[in-house]
Design a protein around this nucleic acid. Sequence first.
DNA 1: GCCCAGGCCATTT
DNA 2: AAATGGCATGGG
Length: 318
Amino acid sequence: MSSDPKLLEGSIAVSQPFDLDVCLNSGQAFAWFQRENAWLGAIRQTAFALRQEKDRLFYHTSAPSFPESDALLRHYFALDDDYEKIRRRLPRDPFLRSAMRFGAGLRILRQDPWECLAGFILSSAKQIVHIRQIWQEVARRWGMPLELRGEGEGVAQPPPAVKKNTAGGGCATWLPVYSFPDPDKMAVLSEADLRSCGMGFRAPYLLHAAQQIAGGEPDLASLRNLPVEKAREKLMRLRGVGQKIADCALLFSLGKNEAFPVDTWILRVLRRVYFRNKRRVRPARLRSFAAGHFGPHGGLAQQYLFHYARMHPHFLAR
DNA sequence: GCCCAGGCCATTT
DNA sequence: AAATGGCATGGG
């Protein structure tokens, strides 16, 4: 219960455009799942249950202290970035502006590079719901169980103000949260281990990436300090990592705000809106257009477009 | 049963 | 260079 001294509850006042649901449901991170009114997941080795109410982010966490939980959340959601200012630097084209209005509160997460890369290796030719399922299975089997309350319970409590399931007088049951296994941990698994999580032909790619990264090549953390082209080139040396997956890792975990991943949704949006419905415009052309048009914060623009398209499937129909 | 999914790779034209 | 087909698996 909330009287458990091990359970840390807190909240953060957010004075920024911020919508938790949009951030965690926009296909950036696959580690979070919704239970009742809360999002459950982990930031590296720290479990959180999150719920937003207006301009306040409420949480329960396994973090040992408020300074640590506060810092983790502020960093992960980039709450100290000035998104009003960033949004003003995006182009004023009408379609982007309406996508920005629709997705107000969307932010680029600052994920762990390994987790982000692994998630997007799993993402190819998969729907987001299924990527989440595979992620959870991998985490459940080889990650660390993270207790949101005292040791031995294995059950997380809902965050503040979340309604409990009062049927039968019992508390709601919350699934335990697991961290995602490190490269070292994954590197010693077999391809069959990974395949048994349902990831199919992506298994050898993920295993190879884990082994490479565990061996220090590439050193993901150091990619942050390279120019985006060099960092992308290193990522693309990994089998199963093309430009799209590399750009996702660069944008969502390595601070490359100009990275503009072109996936099937963005492909269709750009062709339809910015190339007047022309078929046969090739991805390379779209990428160079996007780099020039959307500029140094193109990645955020890309997320607005992606989110808008995915929430308006009829818009791209036909 | 169909279809396709935040792709990538090897193989053909 | 640019267009295919194959790849595993599950959800709609």
